[in-house]
Amino acid sequence: MSVMDKIASSKRESFITNSPWIIHYDAASCNGCDIEVLASLTPLFDVERFGVVNTGNPRHADIFLVTGSVNEQCKPVIEQIYNQMVEPKVVVACGICACSGGVFKQCYNTMGGIDQVIPVDVYVPGCAVRPQALIDGVVKAIGILRAKREAMLDGKPVPTPALRVGAELEVVRHSPDDEPAPTGADASDAAKETK
């Protein structure tokens, strides 16, 4: 490899994608997912050994972990944090509340999932989300972060998913005569009934 190639490839390799910093914000959640986000930083799961560091400052963060559904009052806060983060950035919706509104979907003060307000790249379902799933989601987010960075280096527009204002999450059916798959609290109810 020539020196010029090395310089070119070292520009391509970035500490951002090898050691992403995360910021966590609790939109209208029940706390269950928040403590699981924190639990994945602590000794049993310890994502810090992969270089993932928790930060309180949006301007230092590459990955935005959001838990919980959105309401009118926290909407501007989420938008502000998102806008303060520098590109490339990835948003991970943690928990079924953040994906679709989950158990609180029918509440009068809930607008639905995070994708009603900011573009979401990775959806991690679960109520509460398990740390293992969360780590998997962050690993996926690192791949997306890398792709976004490559696009920026090539001078292409950064791929950003669309907002899904008013849209429902797709229901995946395994065979045509399956019942519609339940979501959120209904899912836990259904799981309970089959016990």
Binding site: N71, Q73, F104, A185, D189
Partner: peptide
């Protein structure tokens, strides 16, 4: 008020046994 969801109102939508999950 940042995480007010209004879940007390869900008693209209879930019966009293299933509301325990909420």
């Amino acid at each position: 008020g940042f995480i007010h969801r209004g879940l007390e109102s869900l008693v209209d939508k879930r019966d009293y046994k299933r509301f325990v999950y909420v």
